[in-house]
Design a protein around this nucleic acid. Sequence first.
RNA 1: UGACCCAUGGUGUAAUGGUAGCACUCCGGUUUUUGGUAUCGUCAGUCAAGGUUCGAGUCCUUGUGGGUCAACCA
Length: 560
Amino acid sequence: MMIEEKKSLNFIEQIIEEDLANGLPKEKLRFRFPPEPNGYLHIGHAASICLNFGLGLRYNAPVNLRFDDTNPTKEEQEYVDAIKHDIDWLGFKWDKELYSSDYFQQLFDWTIELIKEGKAYVDNQSSAEMAQQKGTPTEPGTDSPNRNRSVEENLALFMKMKNGEFEEGSHVLRAKIDMKHTNMHMRDPIMYRILKKRHHRTGNDWCIYPMYDWTHGESDYLEQISHSICTLEFKSHRDLYDWYLDQVVESDKLRPKQREFARRNLSYTVMSKRKLLQLVEEGFVNGWDDPRMPTISGLRRRGYTPASIKTFSETAGISKRDNVTDVALLEHCIKDDLNKTAPRVMAVMNPVKLIITNYPEGKEEWLTAENNQEDENAGYREVPFSREIYIEQEDFREEANKKFFRLKLGSEVRLKNAYIIKAESCLKDENGEVTEIYCTYDDDSLSGSGTEASKRKVKGTLHWVSVKHAEKAEVRVYDRLFTDEAPDGQKDKDFKEFINPDSLTIVDAFVEPSLKTAKVLDRFQFQRLGYFCVDTDATPDKLVFNRTVPLRDSWAKMGE
RNA sequence: UGACCCAUGGUGUAAUGGUAGCACUCCGGUUUUUGGUAUCGUCAGUCAAGGUUCGAGUCCUUGUGGGUCAACCA
């Protein structure tokens, strides 16, 4: 029997369903993702991307990619390119690539009308004076002495602003709304400021640039976006969004609707562009795509898949309350994906040499190994075996209780894909560290050979790499970037105080030779260790792996 | 001494006046040539007090707690 489980709608979808039920034609549904090209996208943006593009898919509606580029002092083409790459990598297709700067002329024309209607005025006070008059959230503001200039004077001054006749910062254009409004954003907000900066798209065409509020809603309107979805910190901008829309909306056109949801926070990291930029600029990480960063590019380099990020966003859901999502959920999503898709290989990170004394010297065998038992199409590969192999130091103990079912003196263990061996003795250095382990093997116990010996139940199975055939590789092991769950949640402490000094450990490892041909961003499971991917620093001569995420380790959890 | 938003297990989310469910985490069992995976199970929740109602996580009131808002940023 099929159990039809209907997925519950999130509150945004509910709003849309309601609008549809109230007569909004389905064909009018249209969404947008509006990044400012002043930084890299992070996992929080992924929530918005997955939401907006997910709605597009769900309702078969177009989704525009619109760069909100009204501030030429911060925005750059580099960021535009990176953002496009990230969205594309996630697998989403935008309908049109657009820029708020495409609308500068229309915005200007509308502004002239507003001035003529007496709804906007030029103010030439200092920013300090204006801030003073603005009041506080608990106290009303007072009117600017320039609030009642004549239309003619405003028009003339605004044209001078536009023509570059005034210095930066000397004049602004303000909407004339209400200096006593309880919403600070309604206290005669600035519509235009003078910025004598070259814009990455419009060059030197303009020296006045519109502010976010006066741009965003009108851009939505011009694109006929039905639902303009943003994060909660814009909630109080909604009054202004609507006020501006009131000035331009024509009754036969769709009026966009702004709705807000809570930003997605992740435990043990920070999610503001400002703070991420700080980590980059102050050298706490090696760039926006450092694998420890919660950026899309960092996660990509770390080995995360688009599917895992989308599953994460979907599973975490959306709502309107503050949240700190456990990074364990993100890690679960990537492990779940990679478990099904990543080829298994063997690598030894902390090697100790093991010699099989009864295995003929000089002999080598190429043994068949299953690439992925979770994927029957993954096939098989050959791995070389010989008399001397590396195993992990922590897989051997001279003596141990019966909970330790790895290798110990006098007992047996299976070498993955190979033979059953028994530890006979070991050699130690002056510090008591084991330097060599001597074993014997059962030559009738080869994995998959079907012999009685091969079917023997042996509790432990170890991964290994043949010494003679081992490839060296640099492995970068990452831990969380911060030691606190919510590093920017502390009132009187800077988030940088919680930076984990051990977030990166570099290990020289030995890997099986099949990895020699691995390409950048190829993902693998190093058996019993975790998921790893080839870092962008790798070259044909030097293998470099990033540890994406370790495997669940219930042995370590026992704490013995 | 303002306005607005929010409050469900440790975490993230469902339940649209009618059995508080799902996922992650944690813990335990089974299986296993990865101490992985899979699988079974345990623990654990409606901020508080009133009110409306046959019935309230849901509606109302009042508290309490958290958040947002005063860039020529978005």
